[in-house]
């Protein structure tokens, strides 16, 4: 029996990829105030893939975009809906930065409440680069998972995923329900154009709070220190071949 796809796509609002992050004075985090934010690029790939499922005439029932975070995450959900998600769910969390496990726990509840059978996540966010949420969610739900997907095909209940692994690709086959995380070469995300963003304002966006889910999202990790990478050291010039050989020997390269 071919089941309808009820897709959940979680998205995260992160500092824009083109912005150079600055460490704050106290060396506890990266400066976020007054910095341009946008949707995590890997999440754009997941939205695009979900929308393409529909365009490829897969039986997509609906695509739900989800985001947990401050009020401004709404803009990201609007972008997701402009790209083709049907509705949005925003869990407001102003104060604390959520950790992957906390998000995975909330996502587990959302999956159960909304009756989802396919979750497509970005493989990692470009701010904390944890690469954990998808895997943790799969563990909590006990579902199959295919991470770093570069190609996805669905036939009835079975999903074939090509993954990028070290030195090649791996093809997995699993049954729905399942978790997929996206890699860079999965597709080419479309641009959320102005008319589509306008149209997306009419799409339903539900707002909830952390308290509605009653899960423990407390901090388990402590950031000890955040520091800039060391500045690149300039190269040096040598006089002649003898100087070069001498220098190489000095450095132990010969």
């Amino acid at each position: 029996m071919a089941s309808k796809l009820r897709i959940l796509v979680p998205v995260k609002r992160v500092i824009d990829y083109a912005v150079k992050p600055r460490v704050n004075k106290a060396q506890t985090a990266v400066e976020t105030t007054g910095v341009k934010h946008s949707m995590n690029p890997f999440d754009e790939l997941s939205i695009e893939e979900a929308v393409r499922f529909r365009e490829r005439k897969y039986p997509v029932e609906d695509i739900l975009a989800f985001s947990a975070g401050p009020a401004k995450s709404q803009d990201i959900l609007r972008t997701a809906m402009a790209m083709g998600a049907d509705r949005g769910l925003h869990v407001v969390e102003e104060k604390t930065e959520l950790e992957p496990l906390g998000v995975a726990k909330v996502l587990q509840k959302v999956v159960e409440e909304e009756g989802r059978n396919l979750v497509i996540l970005g493989k990692q966010s470009i701010d904390d680069d944890a690469n954990q949420t998808g895997q943790m969610l799969a563990g909590l739900l006990g579902w199959s998972q295919a991470t770093q997907a570069s190609k996805v095909d669905i036939e009835g209940d079975s999903v074939t995923v090509t993954r990028e692994v070290d030195g090649g690709v791996e093809t997995l086959k699993a049954k729905l329900p399942m978790i997929i995380t996206t890699d860079l070469r999965l597709n080419e995300p479309r641009y959320a154009s102005l008319p589509n963003i306008m149209k997306a304002k009419k799409k339903p966006l539900q707002k909830k709070s952390m308290a509605d889910y009653a899960v423990d999202t407390g901090k388990r990790l402590k950031t000890v220190k955040v520091a800039e990478p060391p500045a690149r050291q300039g190269g040096g010039k040598v006089e002649d071949v003898g100087g070069l050989i001498g220098r190489l020997k000095e450095l132990g390269a010969l």
Binding site: Y17, L184, E188, R190
Partner: peptide, 19 residues
């Protein structure tokens, strides 16, 4: 322009995240 934005982002990410 849309294609330009896509390529710019793809290249930046590839540089940062691809082995």
């Amino acid at each position: 322009i849309e294609a330009l934005y896509y390529l710019k982002r793809y290249r930046a990410l590839k540089q940062r995240y691809d082995k």
